[in-house]
């Protein structure tokens, strides 16, 4: 009997936590913060290019900041967060997950194939980096979310 009660408590705890995670959204202002972040990062990349300053670690940090900025935009509440927006956001995550996985599996093979045909030198097969996968996933999610919203 005690074991059953304990299991029920665990299930209830899991349910509450999952519900909290599913409902978690950042305030709407984070959408603007994310966009401002993206603009600043883009300007930094342009500056680095023209300043002829090559630093792998700075580029790596900027790439990570792009993902953070996109995550801010993705998680920010809409101006009017009603059930239609919640449904459309869920649909956009589903679509971007499917496309993201397919892209991560297929793109390296296509790039390898094309490069092998064009290049005279020996080409090595390389998987996508974590940045590329996350970039595709988040940009696809935002694209589908706004496209679905516009089509309603």
């Amino acid at each position: 009997m005690n074991l059953i009660n304990h299991q029920t408590d665990i299930c209830e705890f899991e349910r509450k936590n999952l519900k909290w995670m599913l409902k978690f959204r950042l305030p709407h202002v984070f959408q603007k913060i994310g966009i401002a972040f993206l603009v600043l990062i883009l300007l930094s990349f342009i500056y680095l290019k023209f300043a002829d300053f090559e630093s792998a670690s700075i580029k790596d940090i900027l790439r990570k900041l792009i993902i953070v900025a996109l995550l801010f935009i993705s998680l920010a509440k809409d101006k009017f967060e009603d059930e239609l927006v919640i449904v459309l956001r869920a649909q956009s995550y589903t679509l971007s997950s499917i496309i993201g996985v397919c892209y991560a599996l297929i793109a390296p093979a296509i790039i390898y194939g094309i490069t092998s045909l064009i290049s005279a030198e020996e080409v090595t097969f390389a998987d996508l980096s974590i940045f590329e996968v996350l970039w595709i996933f988040l940009t696809m999610q935002l694209f589908f979310f706004y496209a679905l919203k516009k089509s309603r």
Binding site: F80, D82, E83, L84, R152
Partner: peptide, 22 residues
């Protein structure tokens, strides 16, 4: 009913099926 005008428009045009609550 505390939703956006877009939601009402989508329901009227049969583009969105509302939840039981709505």
């Amino acid at each position: 009913i505390e939703v956006s005008r877009q939601t009402i428009n989508s329901i009227e045009k049969n583009r969105y099926v509302p939840s039981t609550v709505l």
